[in-house]
Design a protein around this nucleic acid. Structure first.
Length: 465
RNA sequence: GUCCCGUUCGUCUAGCCCGGUCUAGGACACCUGGUUUUCAUCCAGGCAACAGGGGUUCGAAUCCCCUACGGGAUGCCA
């Protein structure tokens, strides 16, 4: 009994509350997604609460559409939030645009404590320490500097970090809008956030934030600054214009959410053993701060693709077809009227061969249309081994006389080859080429079966001329 | 300029905290061979790294210092 109560108390007191606080910009950046993911993973790992807070103070950019992209992206990646837009919660509202009263209240506390002053129409936060006026080389101006005591950040990823702010900073703009540093800290306090997991680009800001926490008389949360994702080529962090930077793009290109999530989780974190392909439950179980790296990591689409291919191969055919259909449809490969069974039998052949859903339209177009291009290189290669038209002219009557069923086809072709004293494989490349225009693809006999007798004969006759 | 953070194969990383087990392991990519009608898979093998320099130590990828390089911050952006 006592154990029950104790563990309950322990549960309440150690309750982790993390948040993801994006600004809706109209796209869901891979770096944001990774920050969201690490927060979500930590919440799920610890049995804590994951809060989604929308930093929509910039009214120009923050449209409903922009919010939609963000929420859809979160859901696509399988990240659900316990508090936030559309689900509510006890610490709302969850849009900064609706929290002005809270900011006013906290601002008053700062003012009463004598930690603010007005200058140039804006409200500034006053640091504590000895003041001097000196010329700042970078700003090319005389500025007032403060010799403030350095704040110590005990970062869960990077260890002890010490940094001193040296100048007062604006917390409310002259247009009356509170700035990021203020609202971020106020909301974290008001929402009872216990752990702040964010990109390393915020590490330098953290001294400002800690100063604010101290001014409010609140113990700062645990900070965990995670490394950044660098662009694949060139220098700097991934920006929205880089290939592979946007989550919604992966969805459109037919990447599997599981694969993307798995890959992203491995950028800056690893389970300390050789596991790489992990389902989400496994990642949740293993995820923790000690597994997070300090160094930035470079995005590598090849590795993502490899992982994606693995996930693709293990899908059941129904799921595979479900994902493939819209892509084939968009590419104009299939129409609404296309027979479902036929689509599925084609996809069954393709699933183990195609590396991505992206390449699927070109990979299987010939199953649905007679207007397929003949690959020139393959054509030349085949021509070297004899005239394919002659070879196939032999084959037409053989195929004409047989039921299109795998064993029967195999037997008929073999029998014919034997009569000509050659191996059956002598006919295969030409046959594939005539029927698909390609040098590679699904296994030939099943391909014949799926294409069907009528189509195959028509194509061969057209090819032979 | 100043401040903060970082640096192991091309890339993601293990090892580093608690120095010897590391002739530095795995994965992706790449190359070779095998399997396959082809392609994909699969199998076998290969290439390839402790940023540099000092120190400490019997011994350093691991600890300390310096340098270089990379990243970030330095906005009345978030």
């Amino acid at each position: 009994m006592c154990d029950c109560i104790l563990s309950y108390l322990n549960f309440i007191m150690s309750q982790v509350r993390v948040r993801f606080a994006p600004s809706p910009t109209g796209f869901f950046h891979i770096g944001s997604a990774r920050t969201a993911l690490f927060n979500w993973l930590y919440a799920r790992h610890t049995g804590g609460t994951f809060v989604l807070r929308i930093e929509d103070t910039d009214k120009e950019r923050n449209t409903d559409e922009a919010l939609r992209v963000l929420l859809d992206g979160m859901r696509w990646m399988g990240m659900d939030w316990d508090e936030g837009p559309e689900v509510g919660g006890a610490s709302g509202p969850y849009f900064q645009s609706e929290r002005q009263a809270v900011y006013d209240e906290y601002l008053l506390k700062l003012k009463d404590a004598g930690r603010t002053y007005e200058k140039d129409g804006a409200i500034w936060f006053k640091l504590e320490g000895e003041r001097t006026t000196e010329y700042d080389d970078f700003r090319k101006a005389e500025v007032e500097k403060v010799k403030a005591a350095p704040v110590v950040i005990d970062d869960a990823v990077r260890g002890r970090v010490e940094r001193a702010e040296e100048m007062d900073f604006v917390i409310v703009r002259k247009d009356g809008n509170p700035v990021f540093h203020l609202v971020n800290v106020v909301d974290d306090i008001a929402m009872g956030i216990t752990h702040v997991i964010r990109g390393e680009d915020h590490l330098s800001n953290t001294s400002k934030h800690v100063e604010l926490f101290k001014a409010f008389g609140v113990e700062p949360p645990v900070f965990a600054h995670i490394p950044l994702i660098l662009k694949e080529v060139g220098s700097g962090k991934m920006s929205k214009r880089d290939k592979g930077a946007l989550i919604e793009e992966y969805e459109q290109r037919g990447f599997l959410a599981n694969a993307v999530r798995n890959y992203i989780s491995l950028l800056g974190w690893n389970p300390k053993d050789e596991r790489e392909k992990m389902d989400i439950a496994e990642i949740v179980e293993l995820f923790d701060f000690p597994g997070i790296n300090k160094g930035n990591s470079r995005f590598d689409e090849k590795k993502l693709s490899a992982l994606n291919t693995e996930y693709l191969r293990e899908l059941n055919i129904e799921s595979y077809a479900f994902l493939a259909r819209p892509i084939l449809h968009t590419a104009g490969v299939i129409s609404e009227e296309e027979n479902e069974d036929y689509i599925q039998s084609v996809l069954t052949l393709c699933q183990s061969k195609a590396r991505s859903l992206d390449e699927l339209p070109d990979f299987c177009r010939y199953f649905f249309s007679d207007a397929y291009a003949l690959d020139e290189k393959t054509g030349n290669k085949i021509a070297k081994k004899g005239d394919p038209k002659e070879l196939l002219a032999e084959i037409v009557p053989v195929l004409d006389a047989v039921d299109f069923e795998a064993d029967a086809l195999q037997a008929a072709l073999e029998a014919h080859a034997e009569s000509k004293d050659v191996k059956v494989f002598a006919y295969f490349p030409a046959l594939r080429y005539a029927l698909s225009g390609k040098g590679g693809g699904p296994d030939l006999i099943p391909m014949l079966v799926v294409l069907g007798k009528q189509r195959v004969l028509a194509r061969l006759q057209a090819f032979v001329g």
